[in-house]
């Protein structure tokens, strides 16, 4: 016993180091994928309040740009609304009816914490459970998509930014409907990578990449970016396509959280099919 005590006293520095490092690494490993640790969620309240007051001040500096974005979006929406169409035929009329069912709902939120410099970046929003925000909802901006909600507390939501190692977004090239996957390779916050496009497809610079809508999370047809460059690495059958994000991740302010009203149904269907396949 005395020997053990003597050992602990003698090597207390090393032992404490190992202990603390194990605690830290355990926290790290358990939270790499989905940051749901109890520590962080209770920390959310404190850091959330802190970042809210900080962004209340910095928000003013972005007002002009935010307004510009919103008015551009308004113009686009106004253009599509019934009011901007002149009725040319008095005998028939068009009305929204049961043929259309709402699939997506939008909640406005503000970004109160954001980073772009790390390999794995996360965003914090000022809306949480109280506004019906749940895990796996999409976060988009007028310019394109920003990320996916990965955990929520009462008043705040943590979002995995597109600028993350774990990002995989099902995408498509608008011109020819070719399907691919968008990932981020971790250097430039304005450049993403589109993969899984077969090498025989014809591409050109400036082609638009949009979401495919196949993921149950993101609505179809949202802008992701435009192709910068494309090449086929030796011995590969797929293109490597760096593209410029349409969103400036460094200046996110107001975003929409998208709720897919039919997600549950889609998930359930997928699950039952998978279960049947496994049987």
């Amino acid at each position: 016993m005395r020997n053990i005590l003597a050992f602990i006293v003698r090597f207390h520095f090393l032992l404490l180091f190992v202990l603390l490092e194990v605690v830290a690494l355990a926290m790290f490993v358990n939270s790499t994928y989905f940051q749901q640790s109890a520590v962080l969620n209770s920390g959310n309240v404190i850091t959330g309040k802190f970042y809210t007051s900080a962004s209340n001040i910095t928000g003013y500096f972005k007002l002009r740009r935010t307004n510009e974005l919103l008015s551009i979006e308004n113009a686009i929406l106004r253009q599509g609304s019934d009011l901007s169409f002149l009725k040319t035929d008095s005998t028939s009329f068009w009305k929204k009816d049961t043929l259309y069912r709402q699939q997506y709902k939008y909640v406005i939120a503000r970004v109160i914490h954001n980073s772009v410099g790390k390999r794995n970046n996360y965003i914090m929003l000022d809306k949480g459970k109280r506004f019906g925000i749940e895990k796996d909802m999409a976060v988009i901006t007028p310019n394109g998509i920003a990320g996916t909600v990965i955990s929520v507390s009462e008043n705040f939501a943590w979002v995995m930014s597109v600028l993350n190692k774990h990002t995989r977004i099902s995408a498509r090239i608008r011109k020819n409907d070719q399907m691919g996957t968008v990932v981020w390779n971790g250097i430039d916050p304005s450049v993403g990578t589109l993969t899984d496009i077969p090498a025989h497809v014809k591409l050109s610079r400036g082609d638009t990449i949009v979401t495919s809508g196949f993921s149950n999370i993101f609505p179809a047809g949202l802008m992701l970016g435009t192709i910068n460059d494309f090449r086929v690495e030796q011995g590969e059958h797929f293109y490597l396509i760096p593209f410029t994000f349409s969103v400036d991740f460094n200046s996110l302010d107001y975003v929409y959280i998208v709720k897919n009203l039919m997600k549950e149904e889609q998930d359930k269907l997928m699950q039952t099919t998978e279960n049947q396949a496994n049987e």
Binding site: A24, Q35, T47
Partner: peptide
């Protein structure tokens, strides 16, 4: 870590 949302990373 608490403020960056990266539990364990800066701590380690």
């Amino acid at each position: 870590d608490i403020f960056s949302g990266t539990p364990g990373l800066h701590t380690a």
